[in-house]
Design a binder for these strands. Structure first.
Lengths: 96, 96
DNA sequence: GTCAGCTGTCAACGTTCATAGACATTACAT
DNA sequence: ATGTAATGTCTATGAACGTTGACAGCTGAC
């Protein structure tokens, strides 16, 4: 499952919570957040705190990973901006 | 790469930014955030806004995915709390 | 040396978050 | 019908966010 928006993460949390048979209050307690926050997050709250999101996902046993590949949709495969910026800023240390 | 903490995400952002040859100001503009925020985020800011994090990762072409498998470390393979909760709350609608 | 660019830090400001508590609604069970 | 449990909504409060603008260190180029 790919996560591009807060709504995706909210749906993931809700889906995993139901898979585990947890109610909102129990998950909130396990994750150390308020039940209200769970409600808002599952509804797609987009300005939630990163720390709370990570805590909740950990409480659900969800592992987040980042693919090195370029996004498949919506992002151009060739990023001219990045190439031009790279050419203009040769001083930056590259990762190797 | 697995992301468990805000620090992980910060390091990911910094690493990908350098890979693309972008400086902080350029990335900030592309992602629609302030340069100060990039500085704090790359340092591991843990209470950052989810929306800004997602915007930044999108600007970097990073795709976030969630594995269905259980976390390998730190989480018990058998979650008694979840099982008991499930037994006590048979009313909850299961995903499938 | 001098200059330009990148990075990190600071203060002040307005905005938004996250929380607790109470309430209404829905659904199931007895 | 009554009672229990889960979910969603609302208000008010304190805390933290994210932003701008300016400044100091540092590196590399001229």
């Amino acid at each position: 499952m790919t996560l591009k928006t807060a709504r995706d993460i909210g749906l993931l949390i809700k889906s995993k919570r139901l898979d585990l048979g947890l109610d909102q209050a129990t998950l909130a307690k396990k994750a150390g957040v308020s039940r209200i926050w769970i409600v808002a997050m599952e509804a797609g709250k987009d300005n939630a705190s990163l720390a709370l999101v990570l805590r909740t996902l950990n409480a659900l046993g969800v592992v987040l990973t980042a693919d090195a590949r370029t996004a498949q949709t919506g992002a151009p495969q060739i990023d001219l901006d990045a190439i031009i910026a790279a050419a203009k800023a040769p001083r930056i240390v590259r990762k190797s």
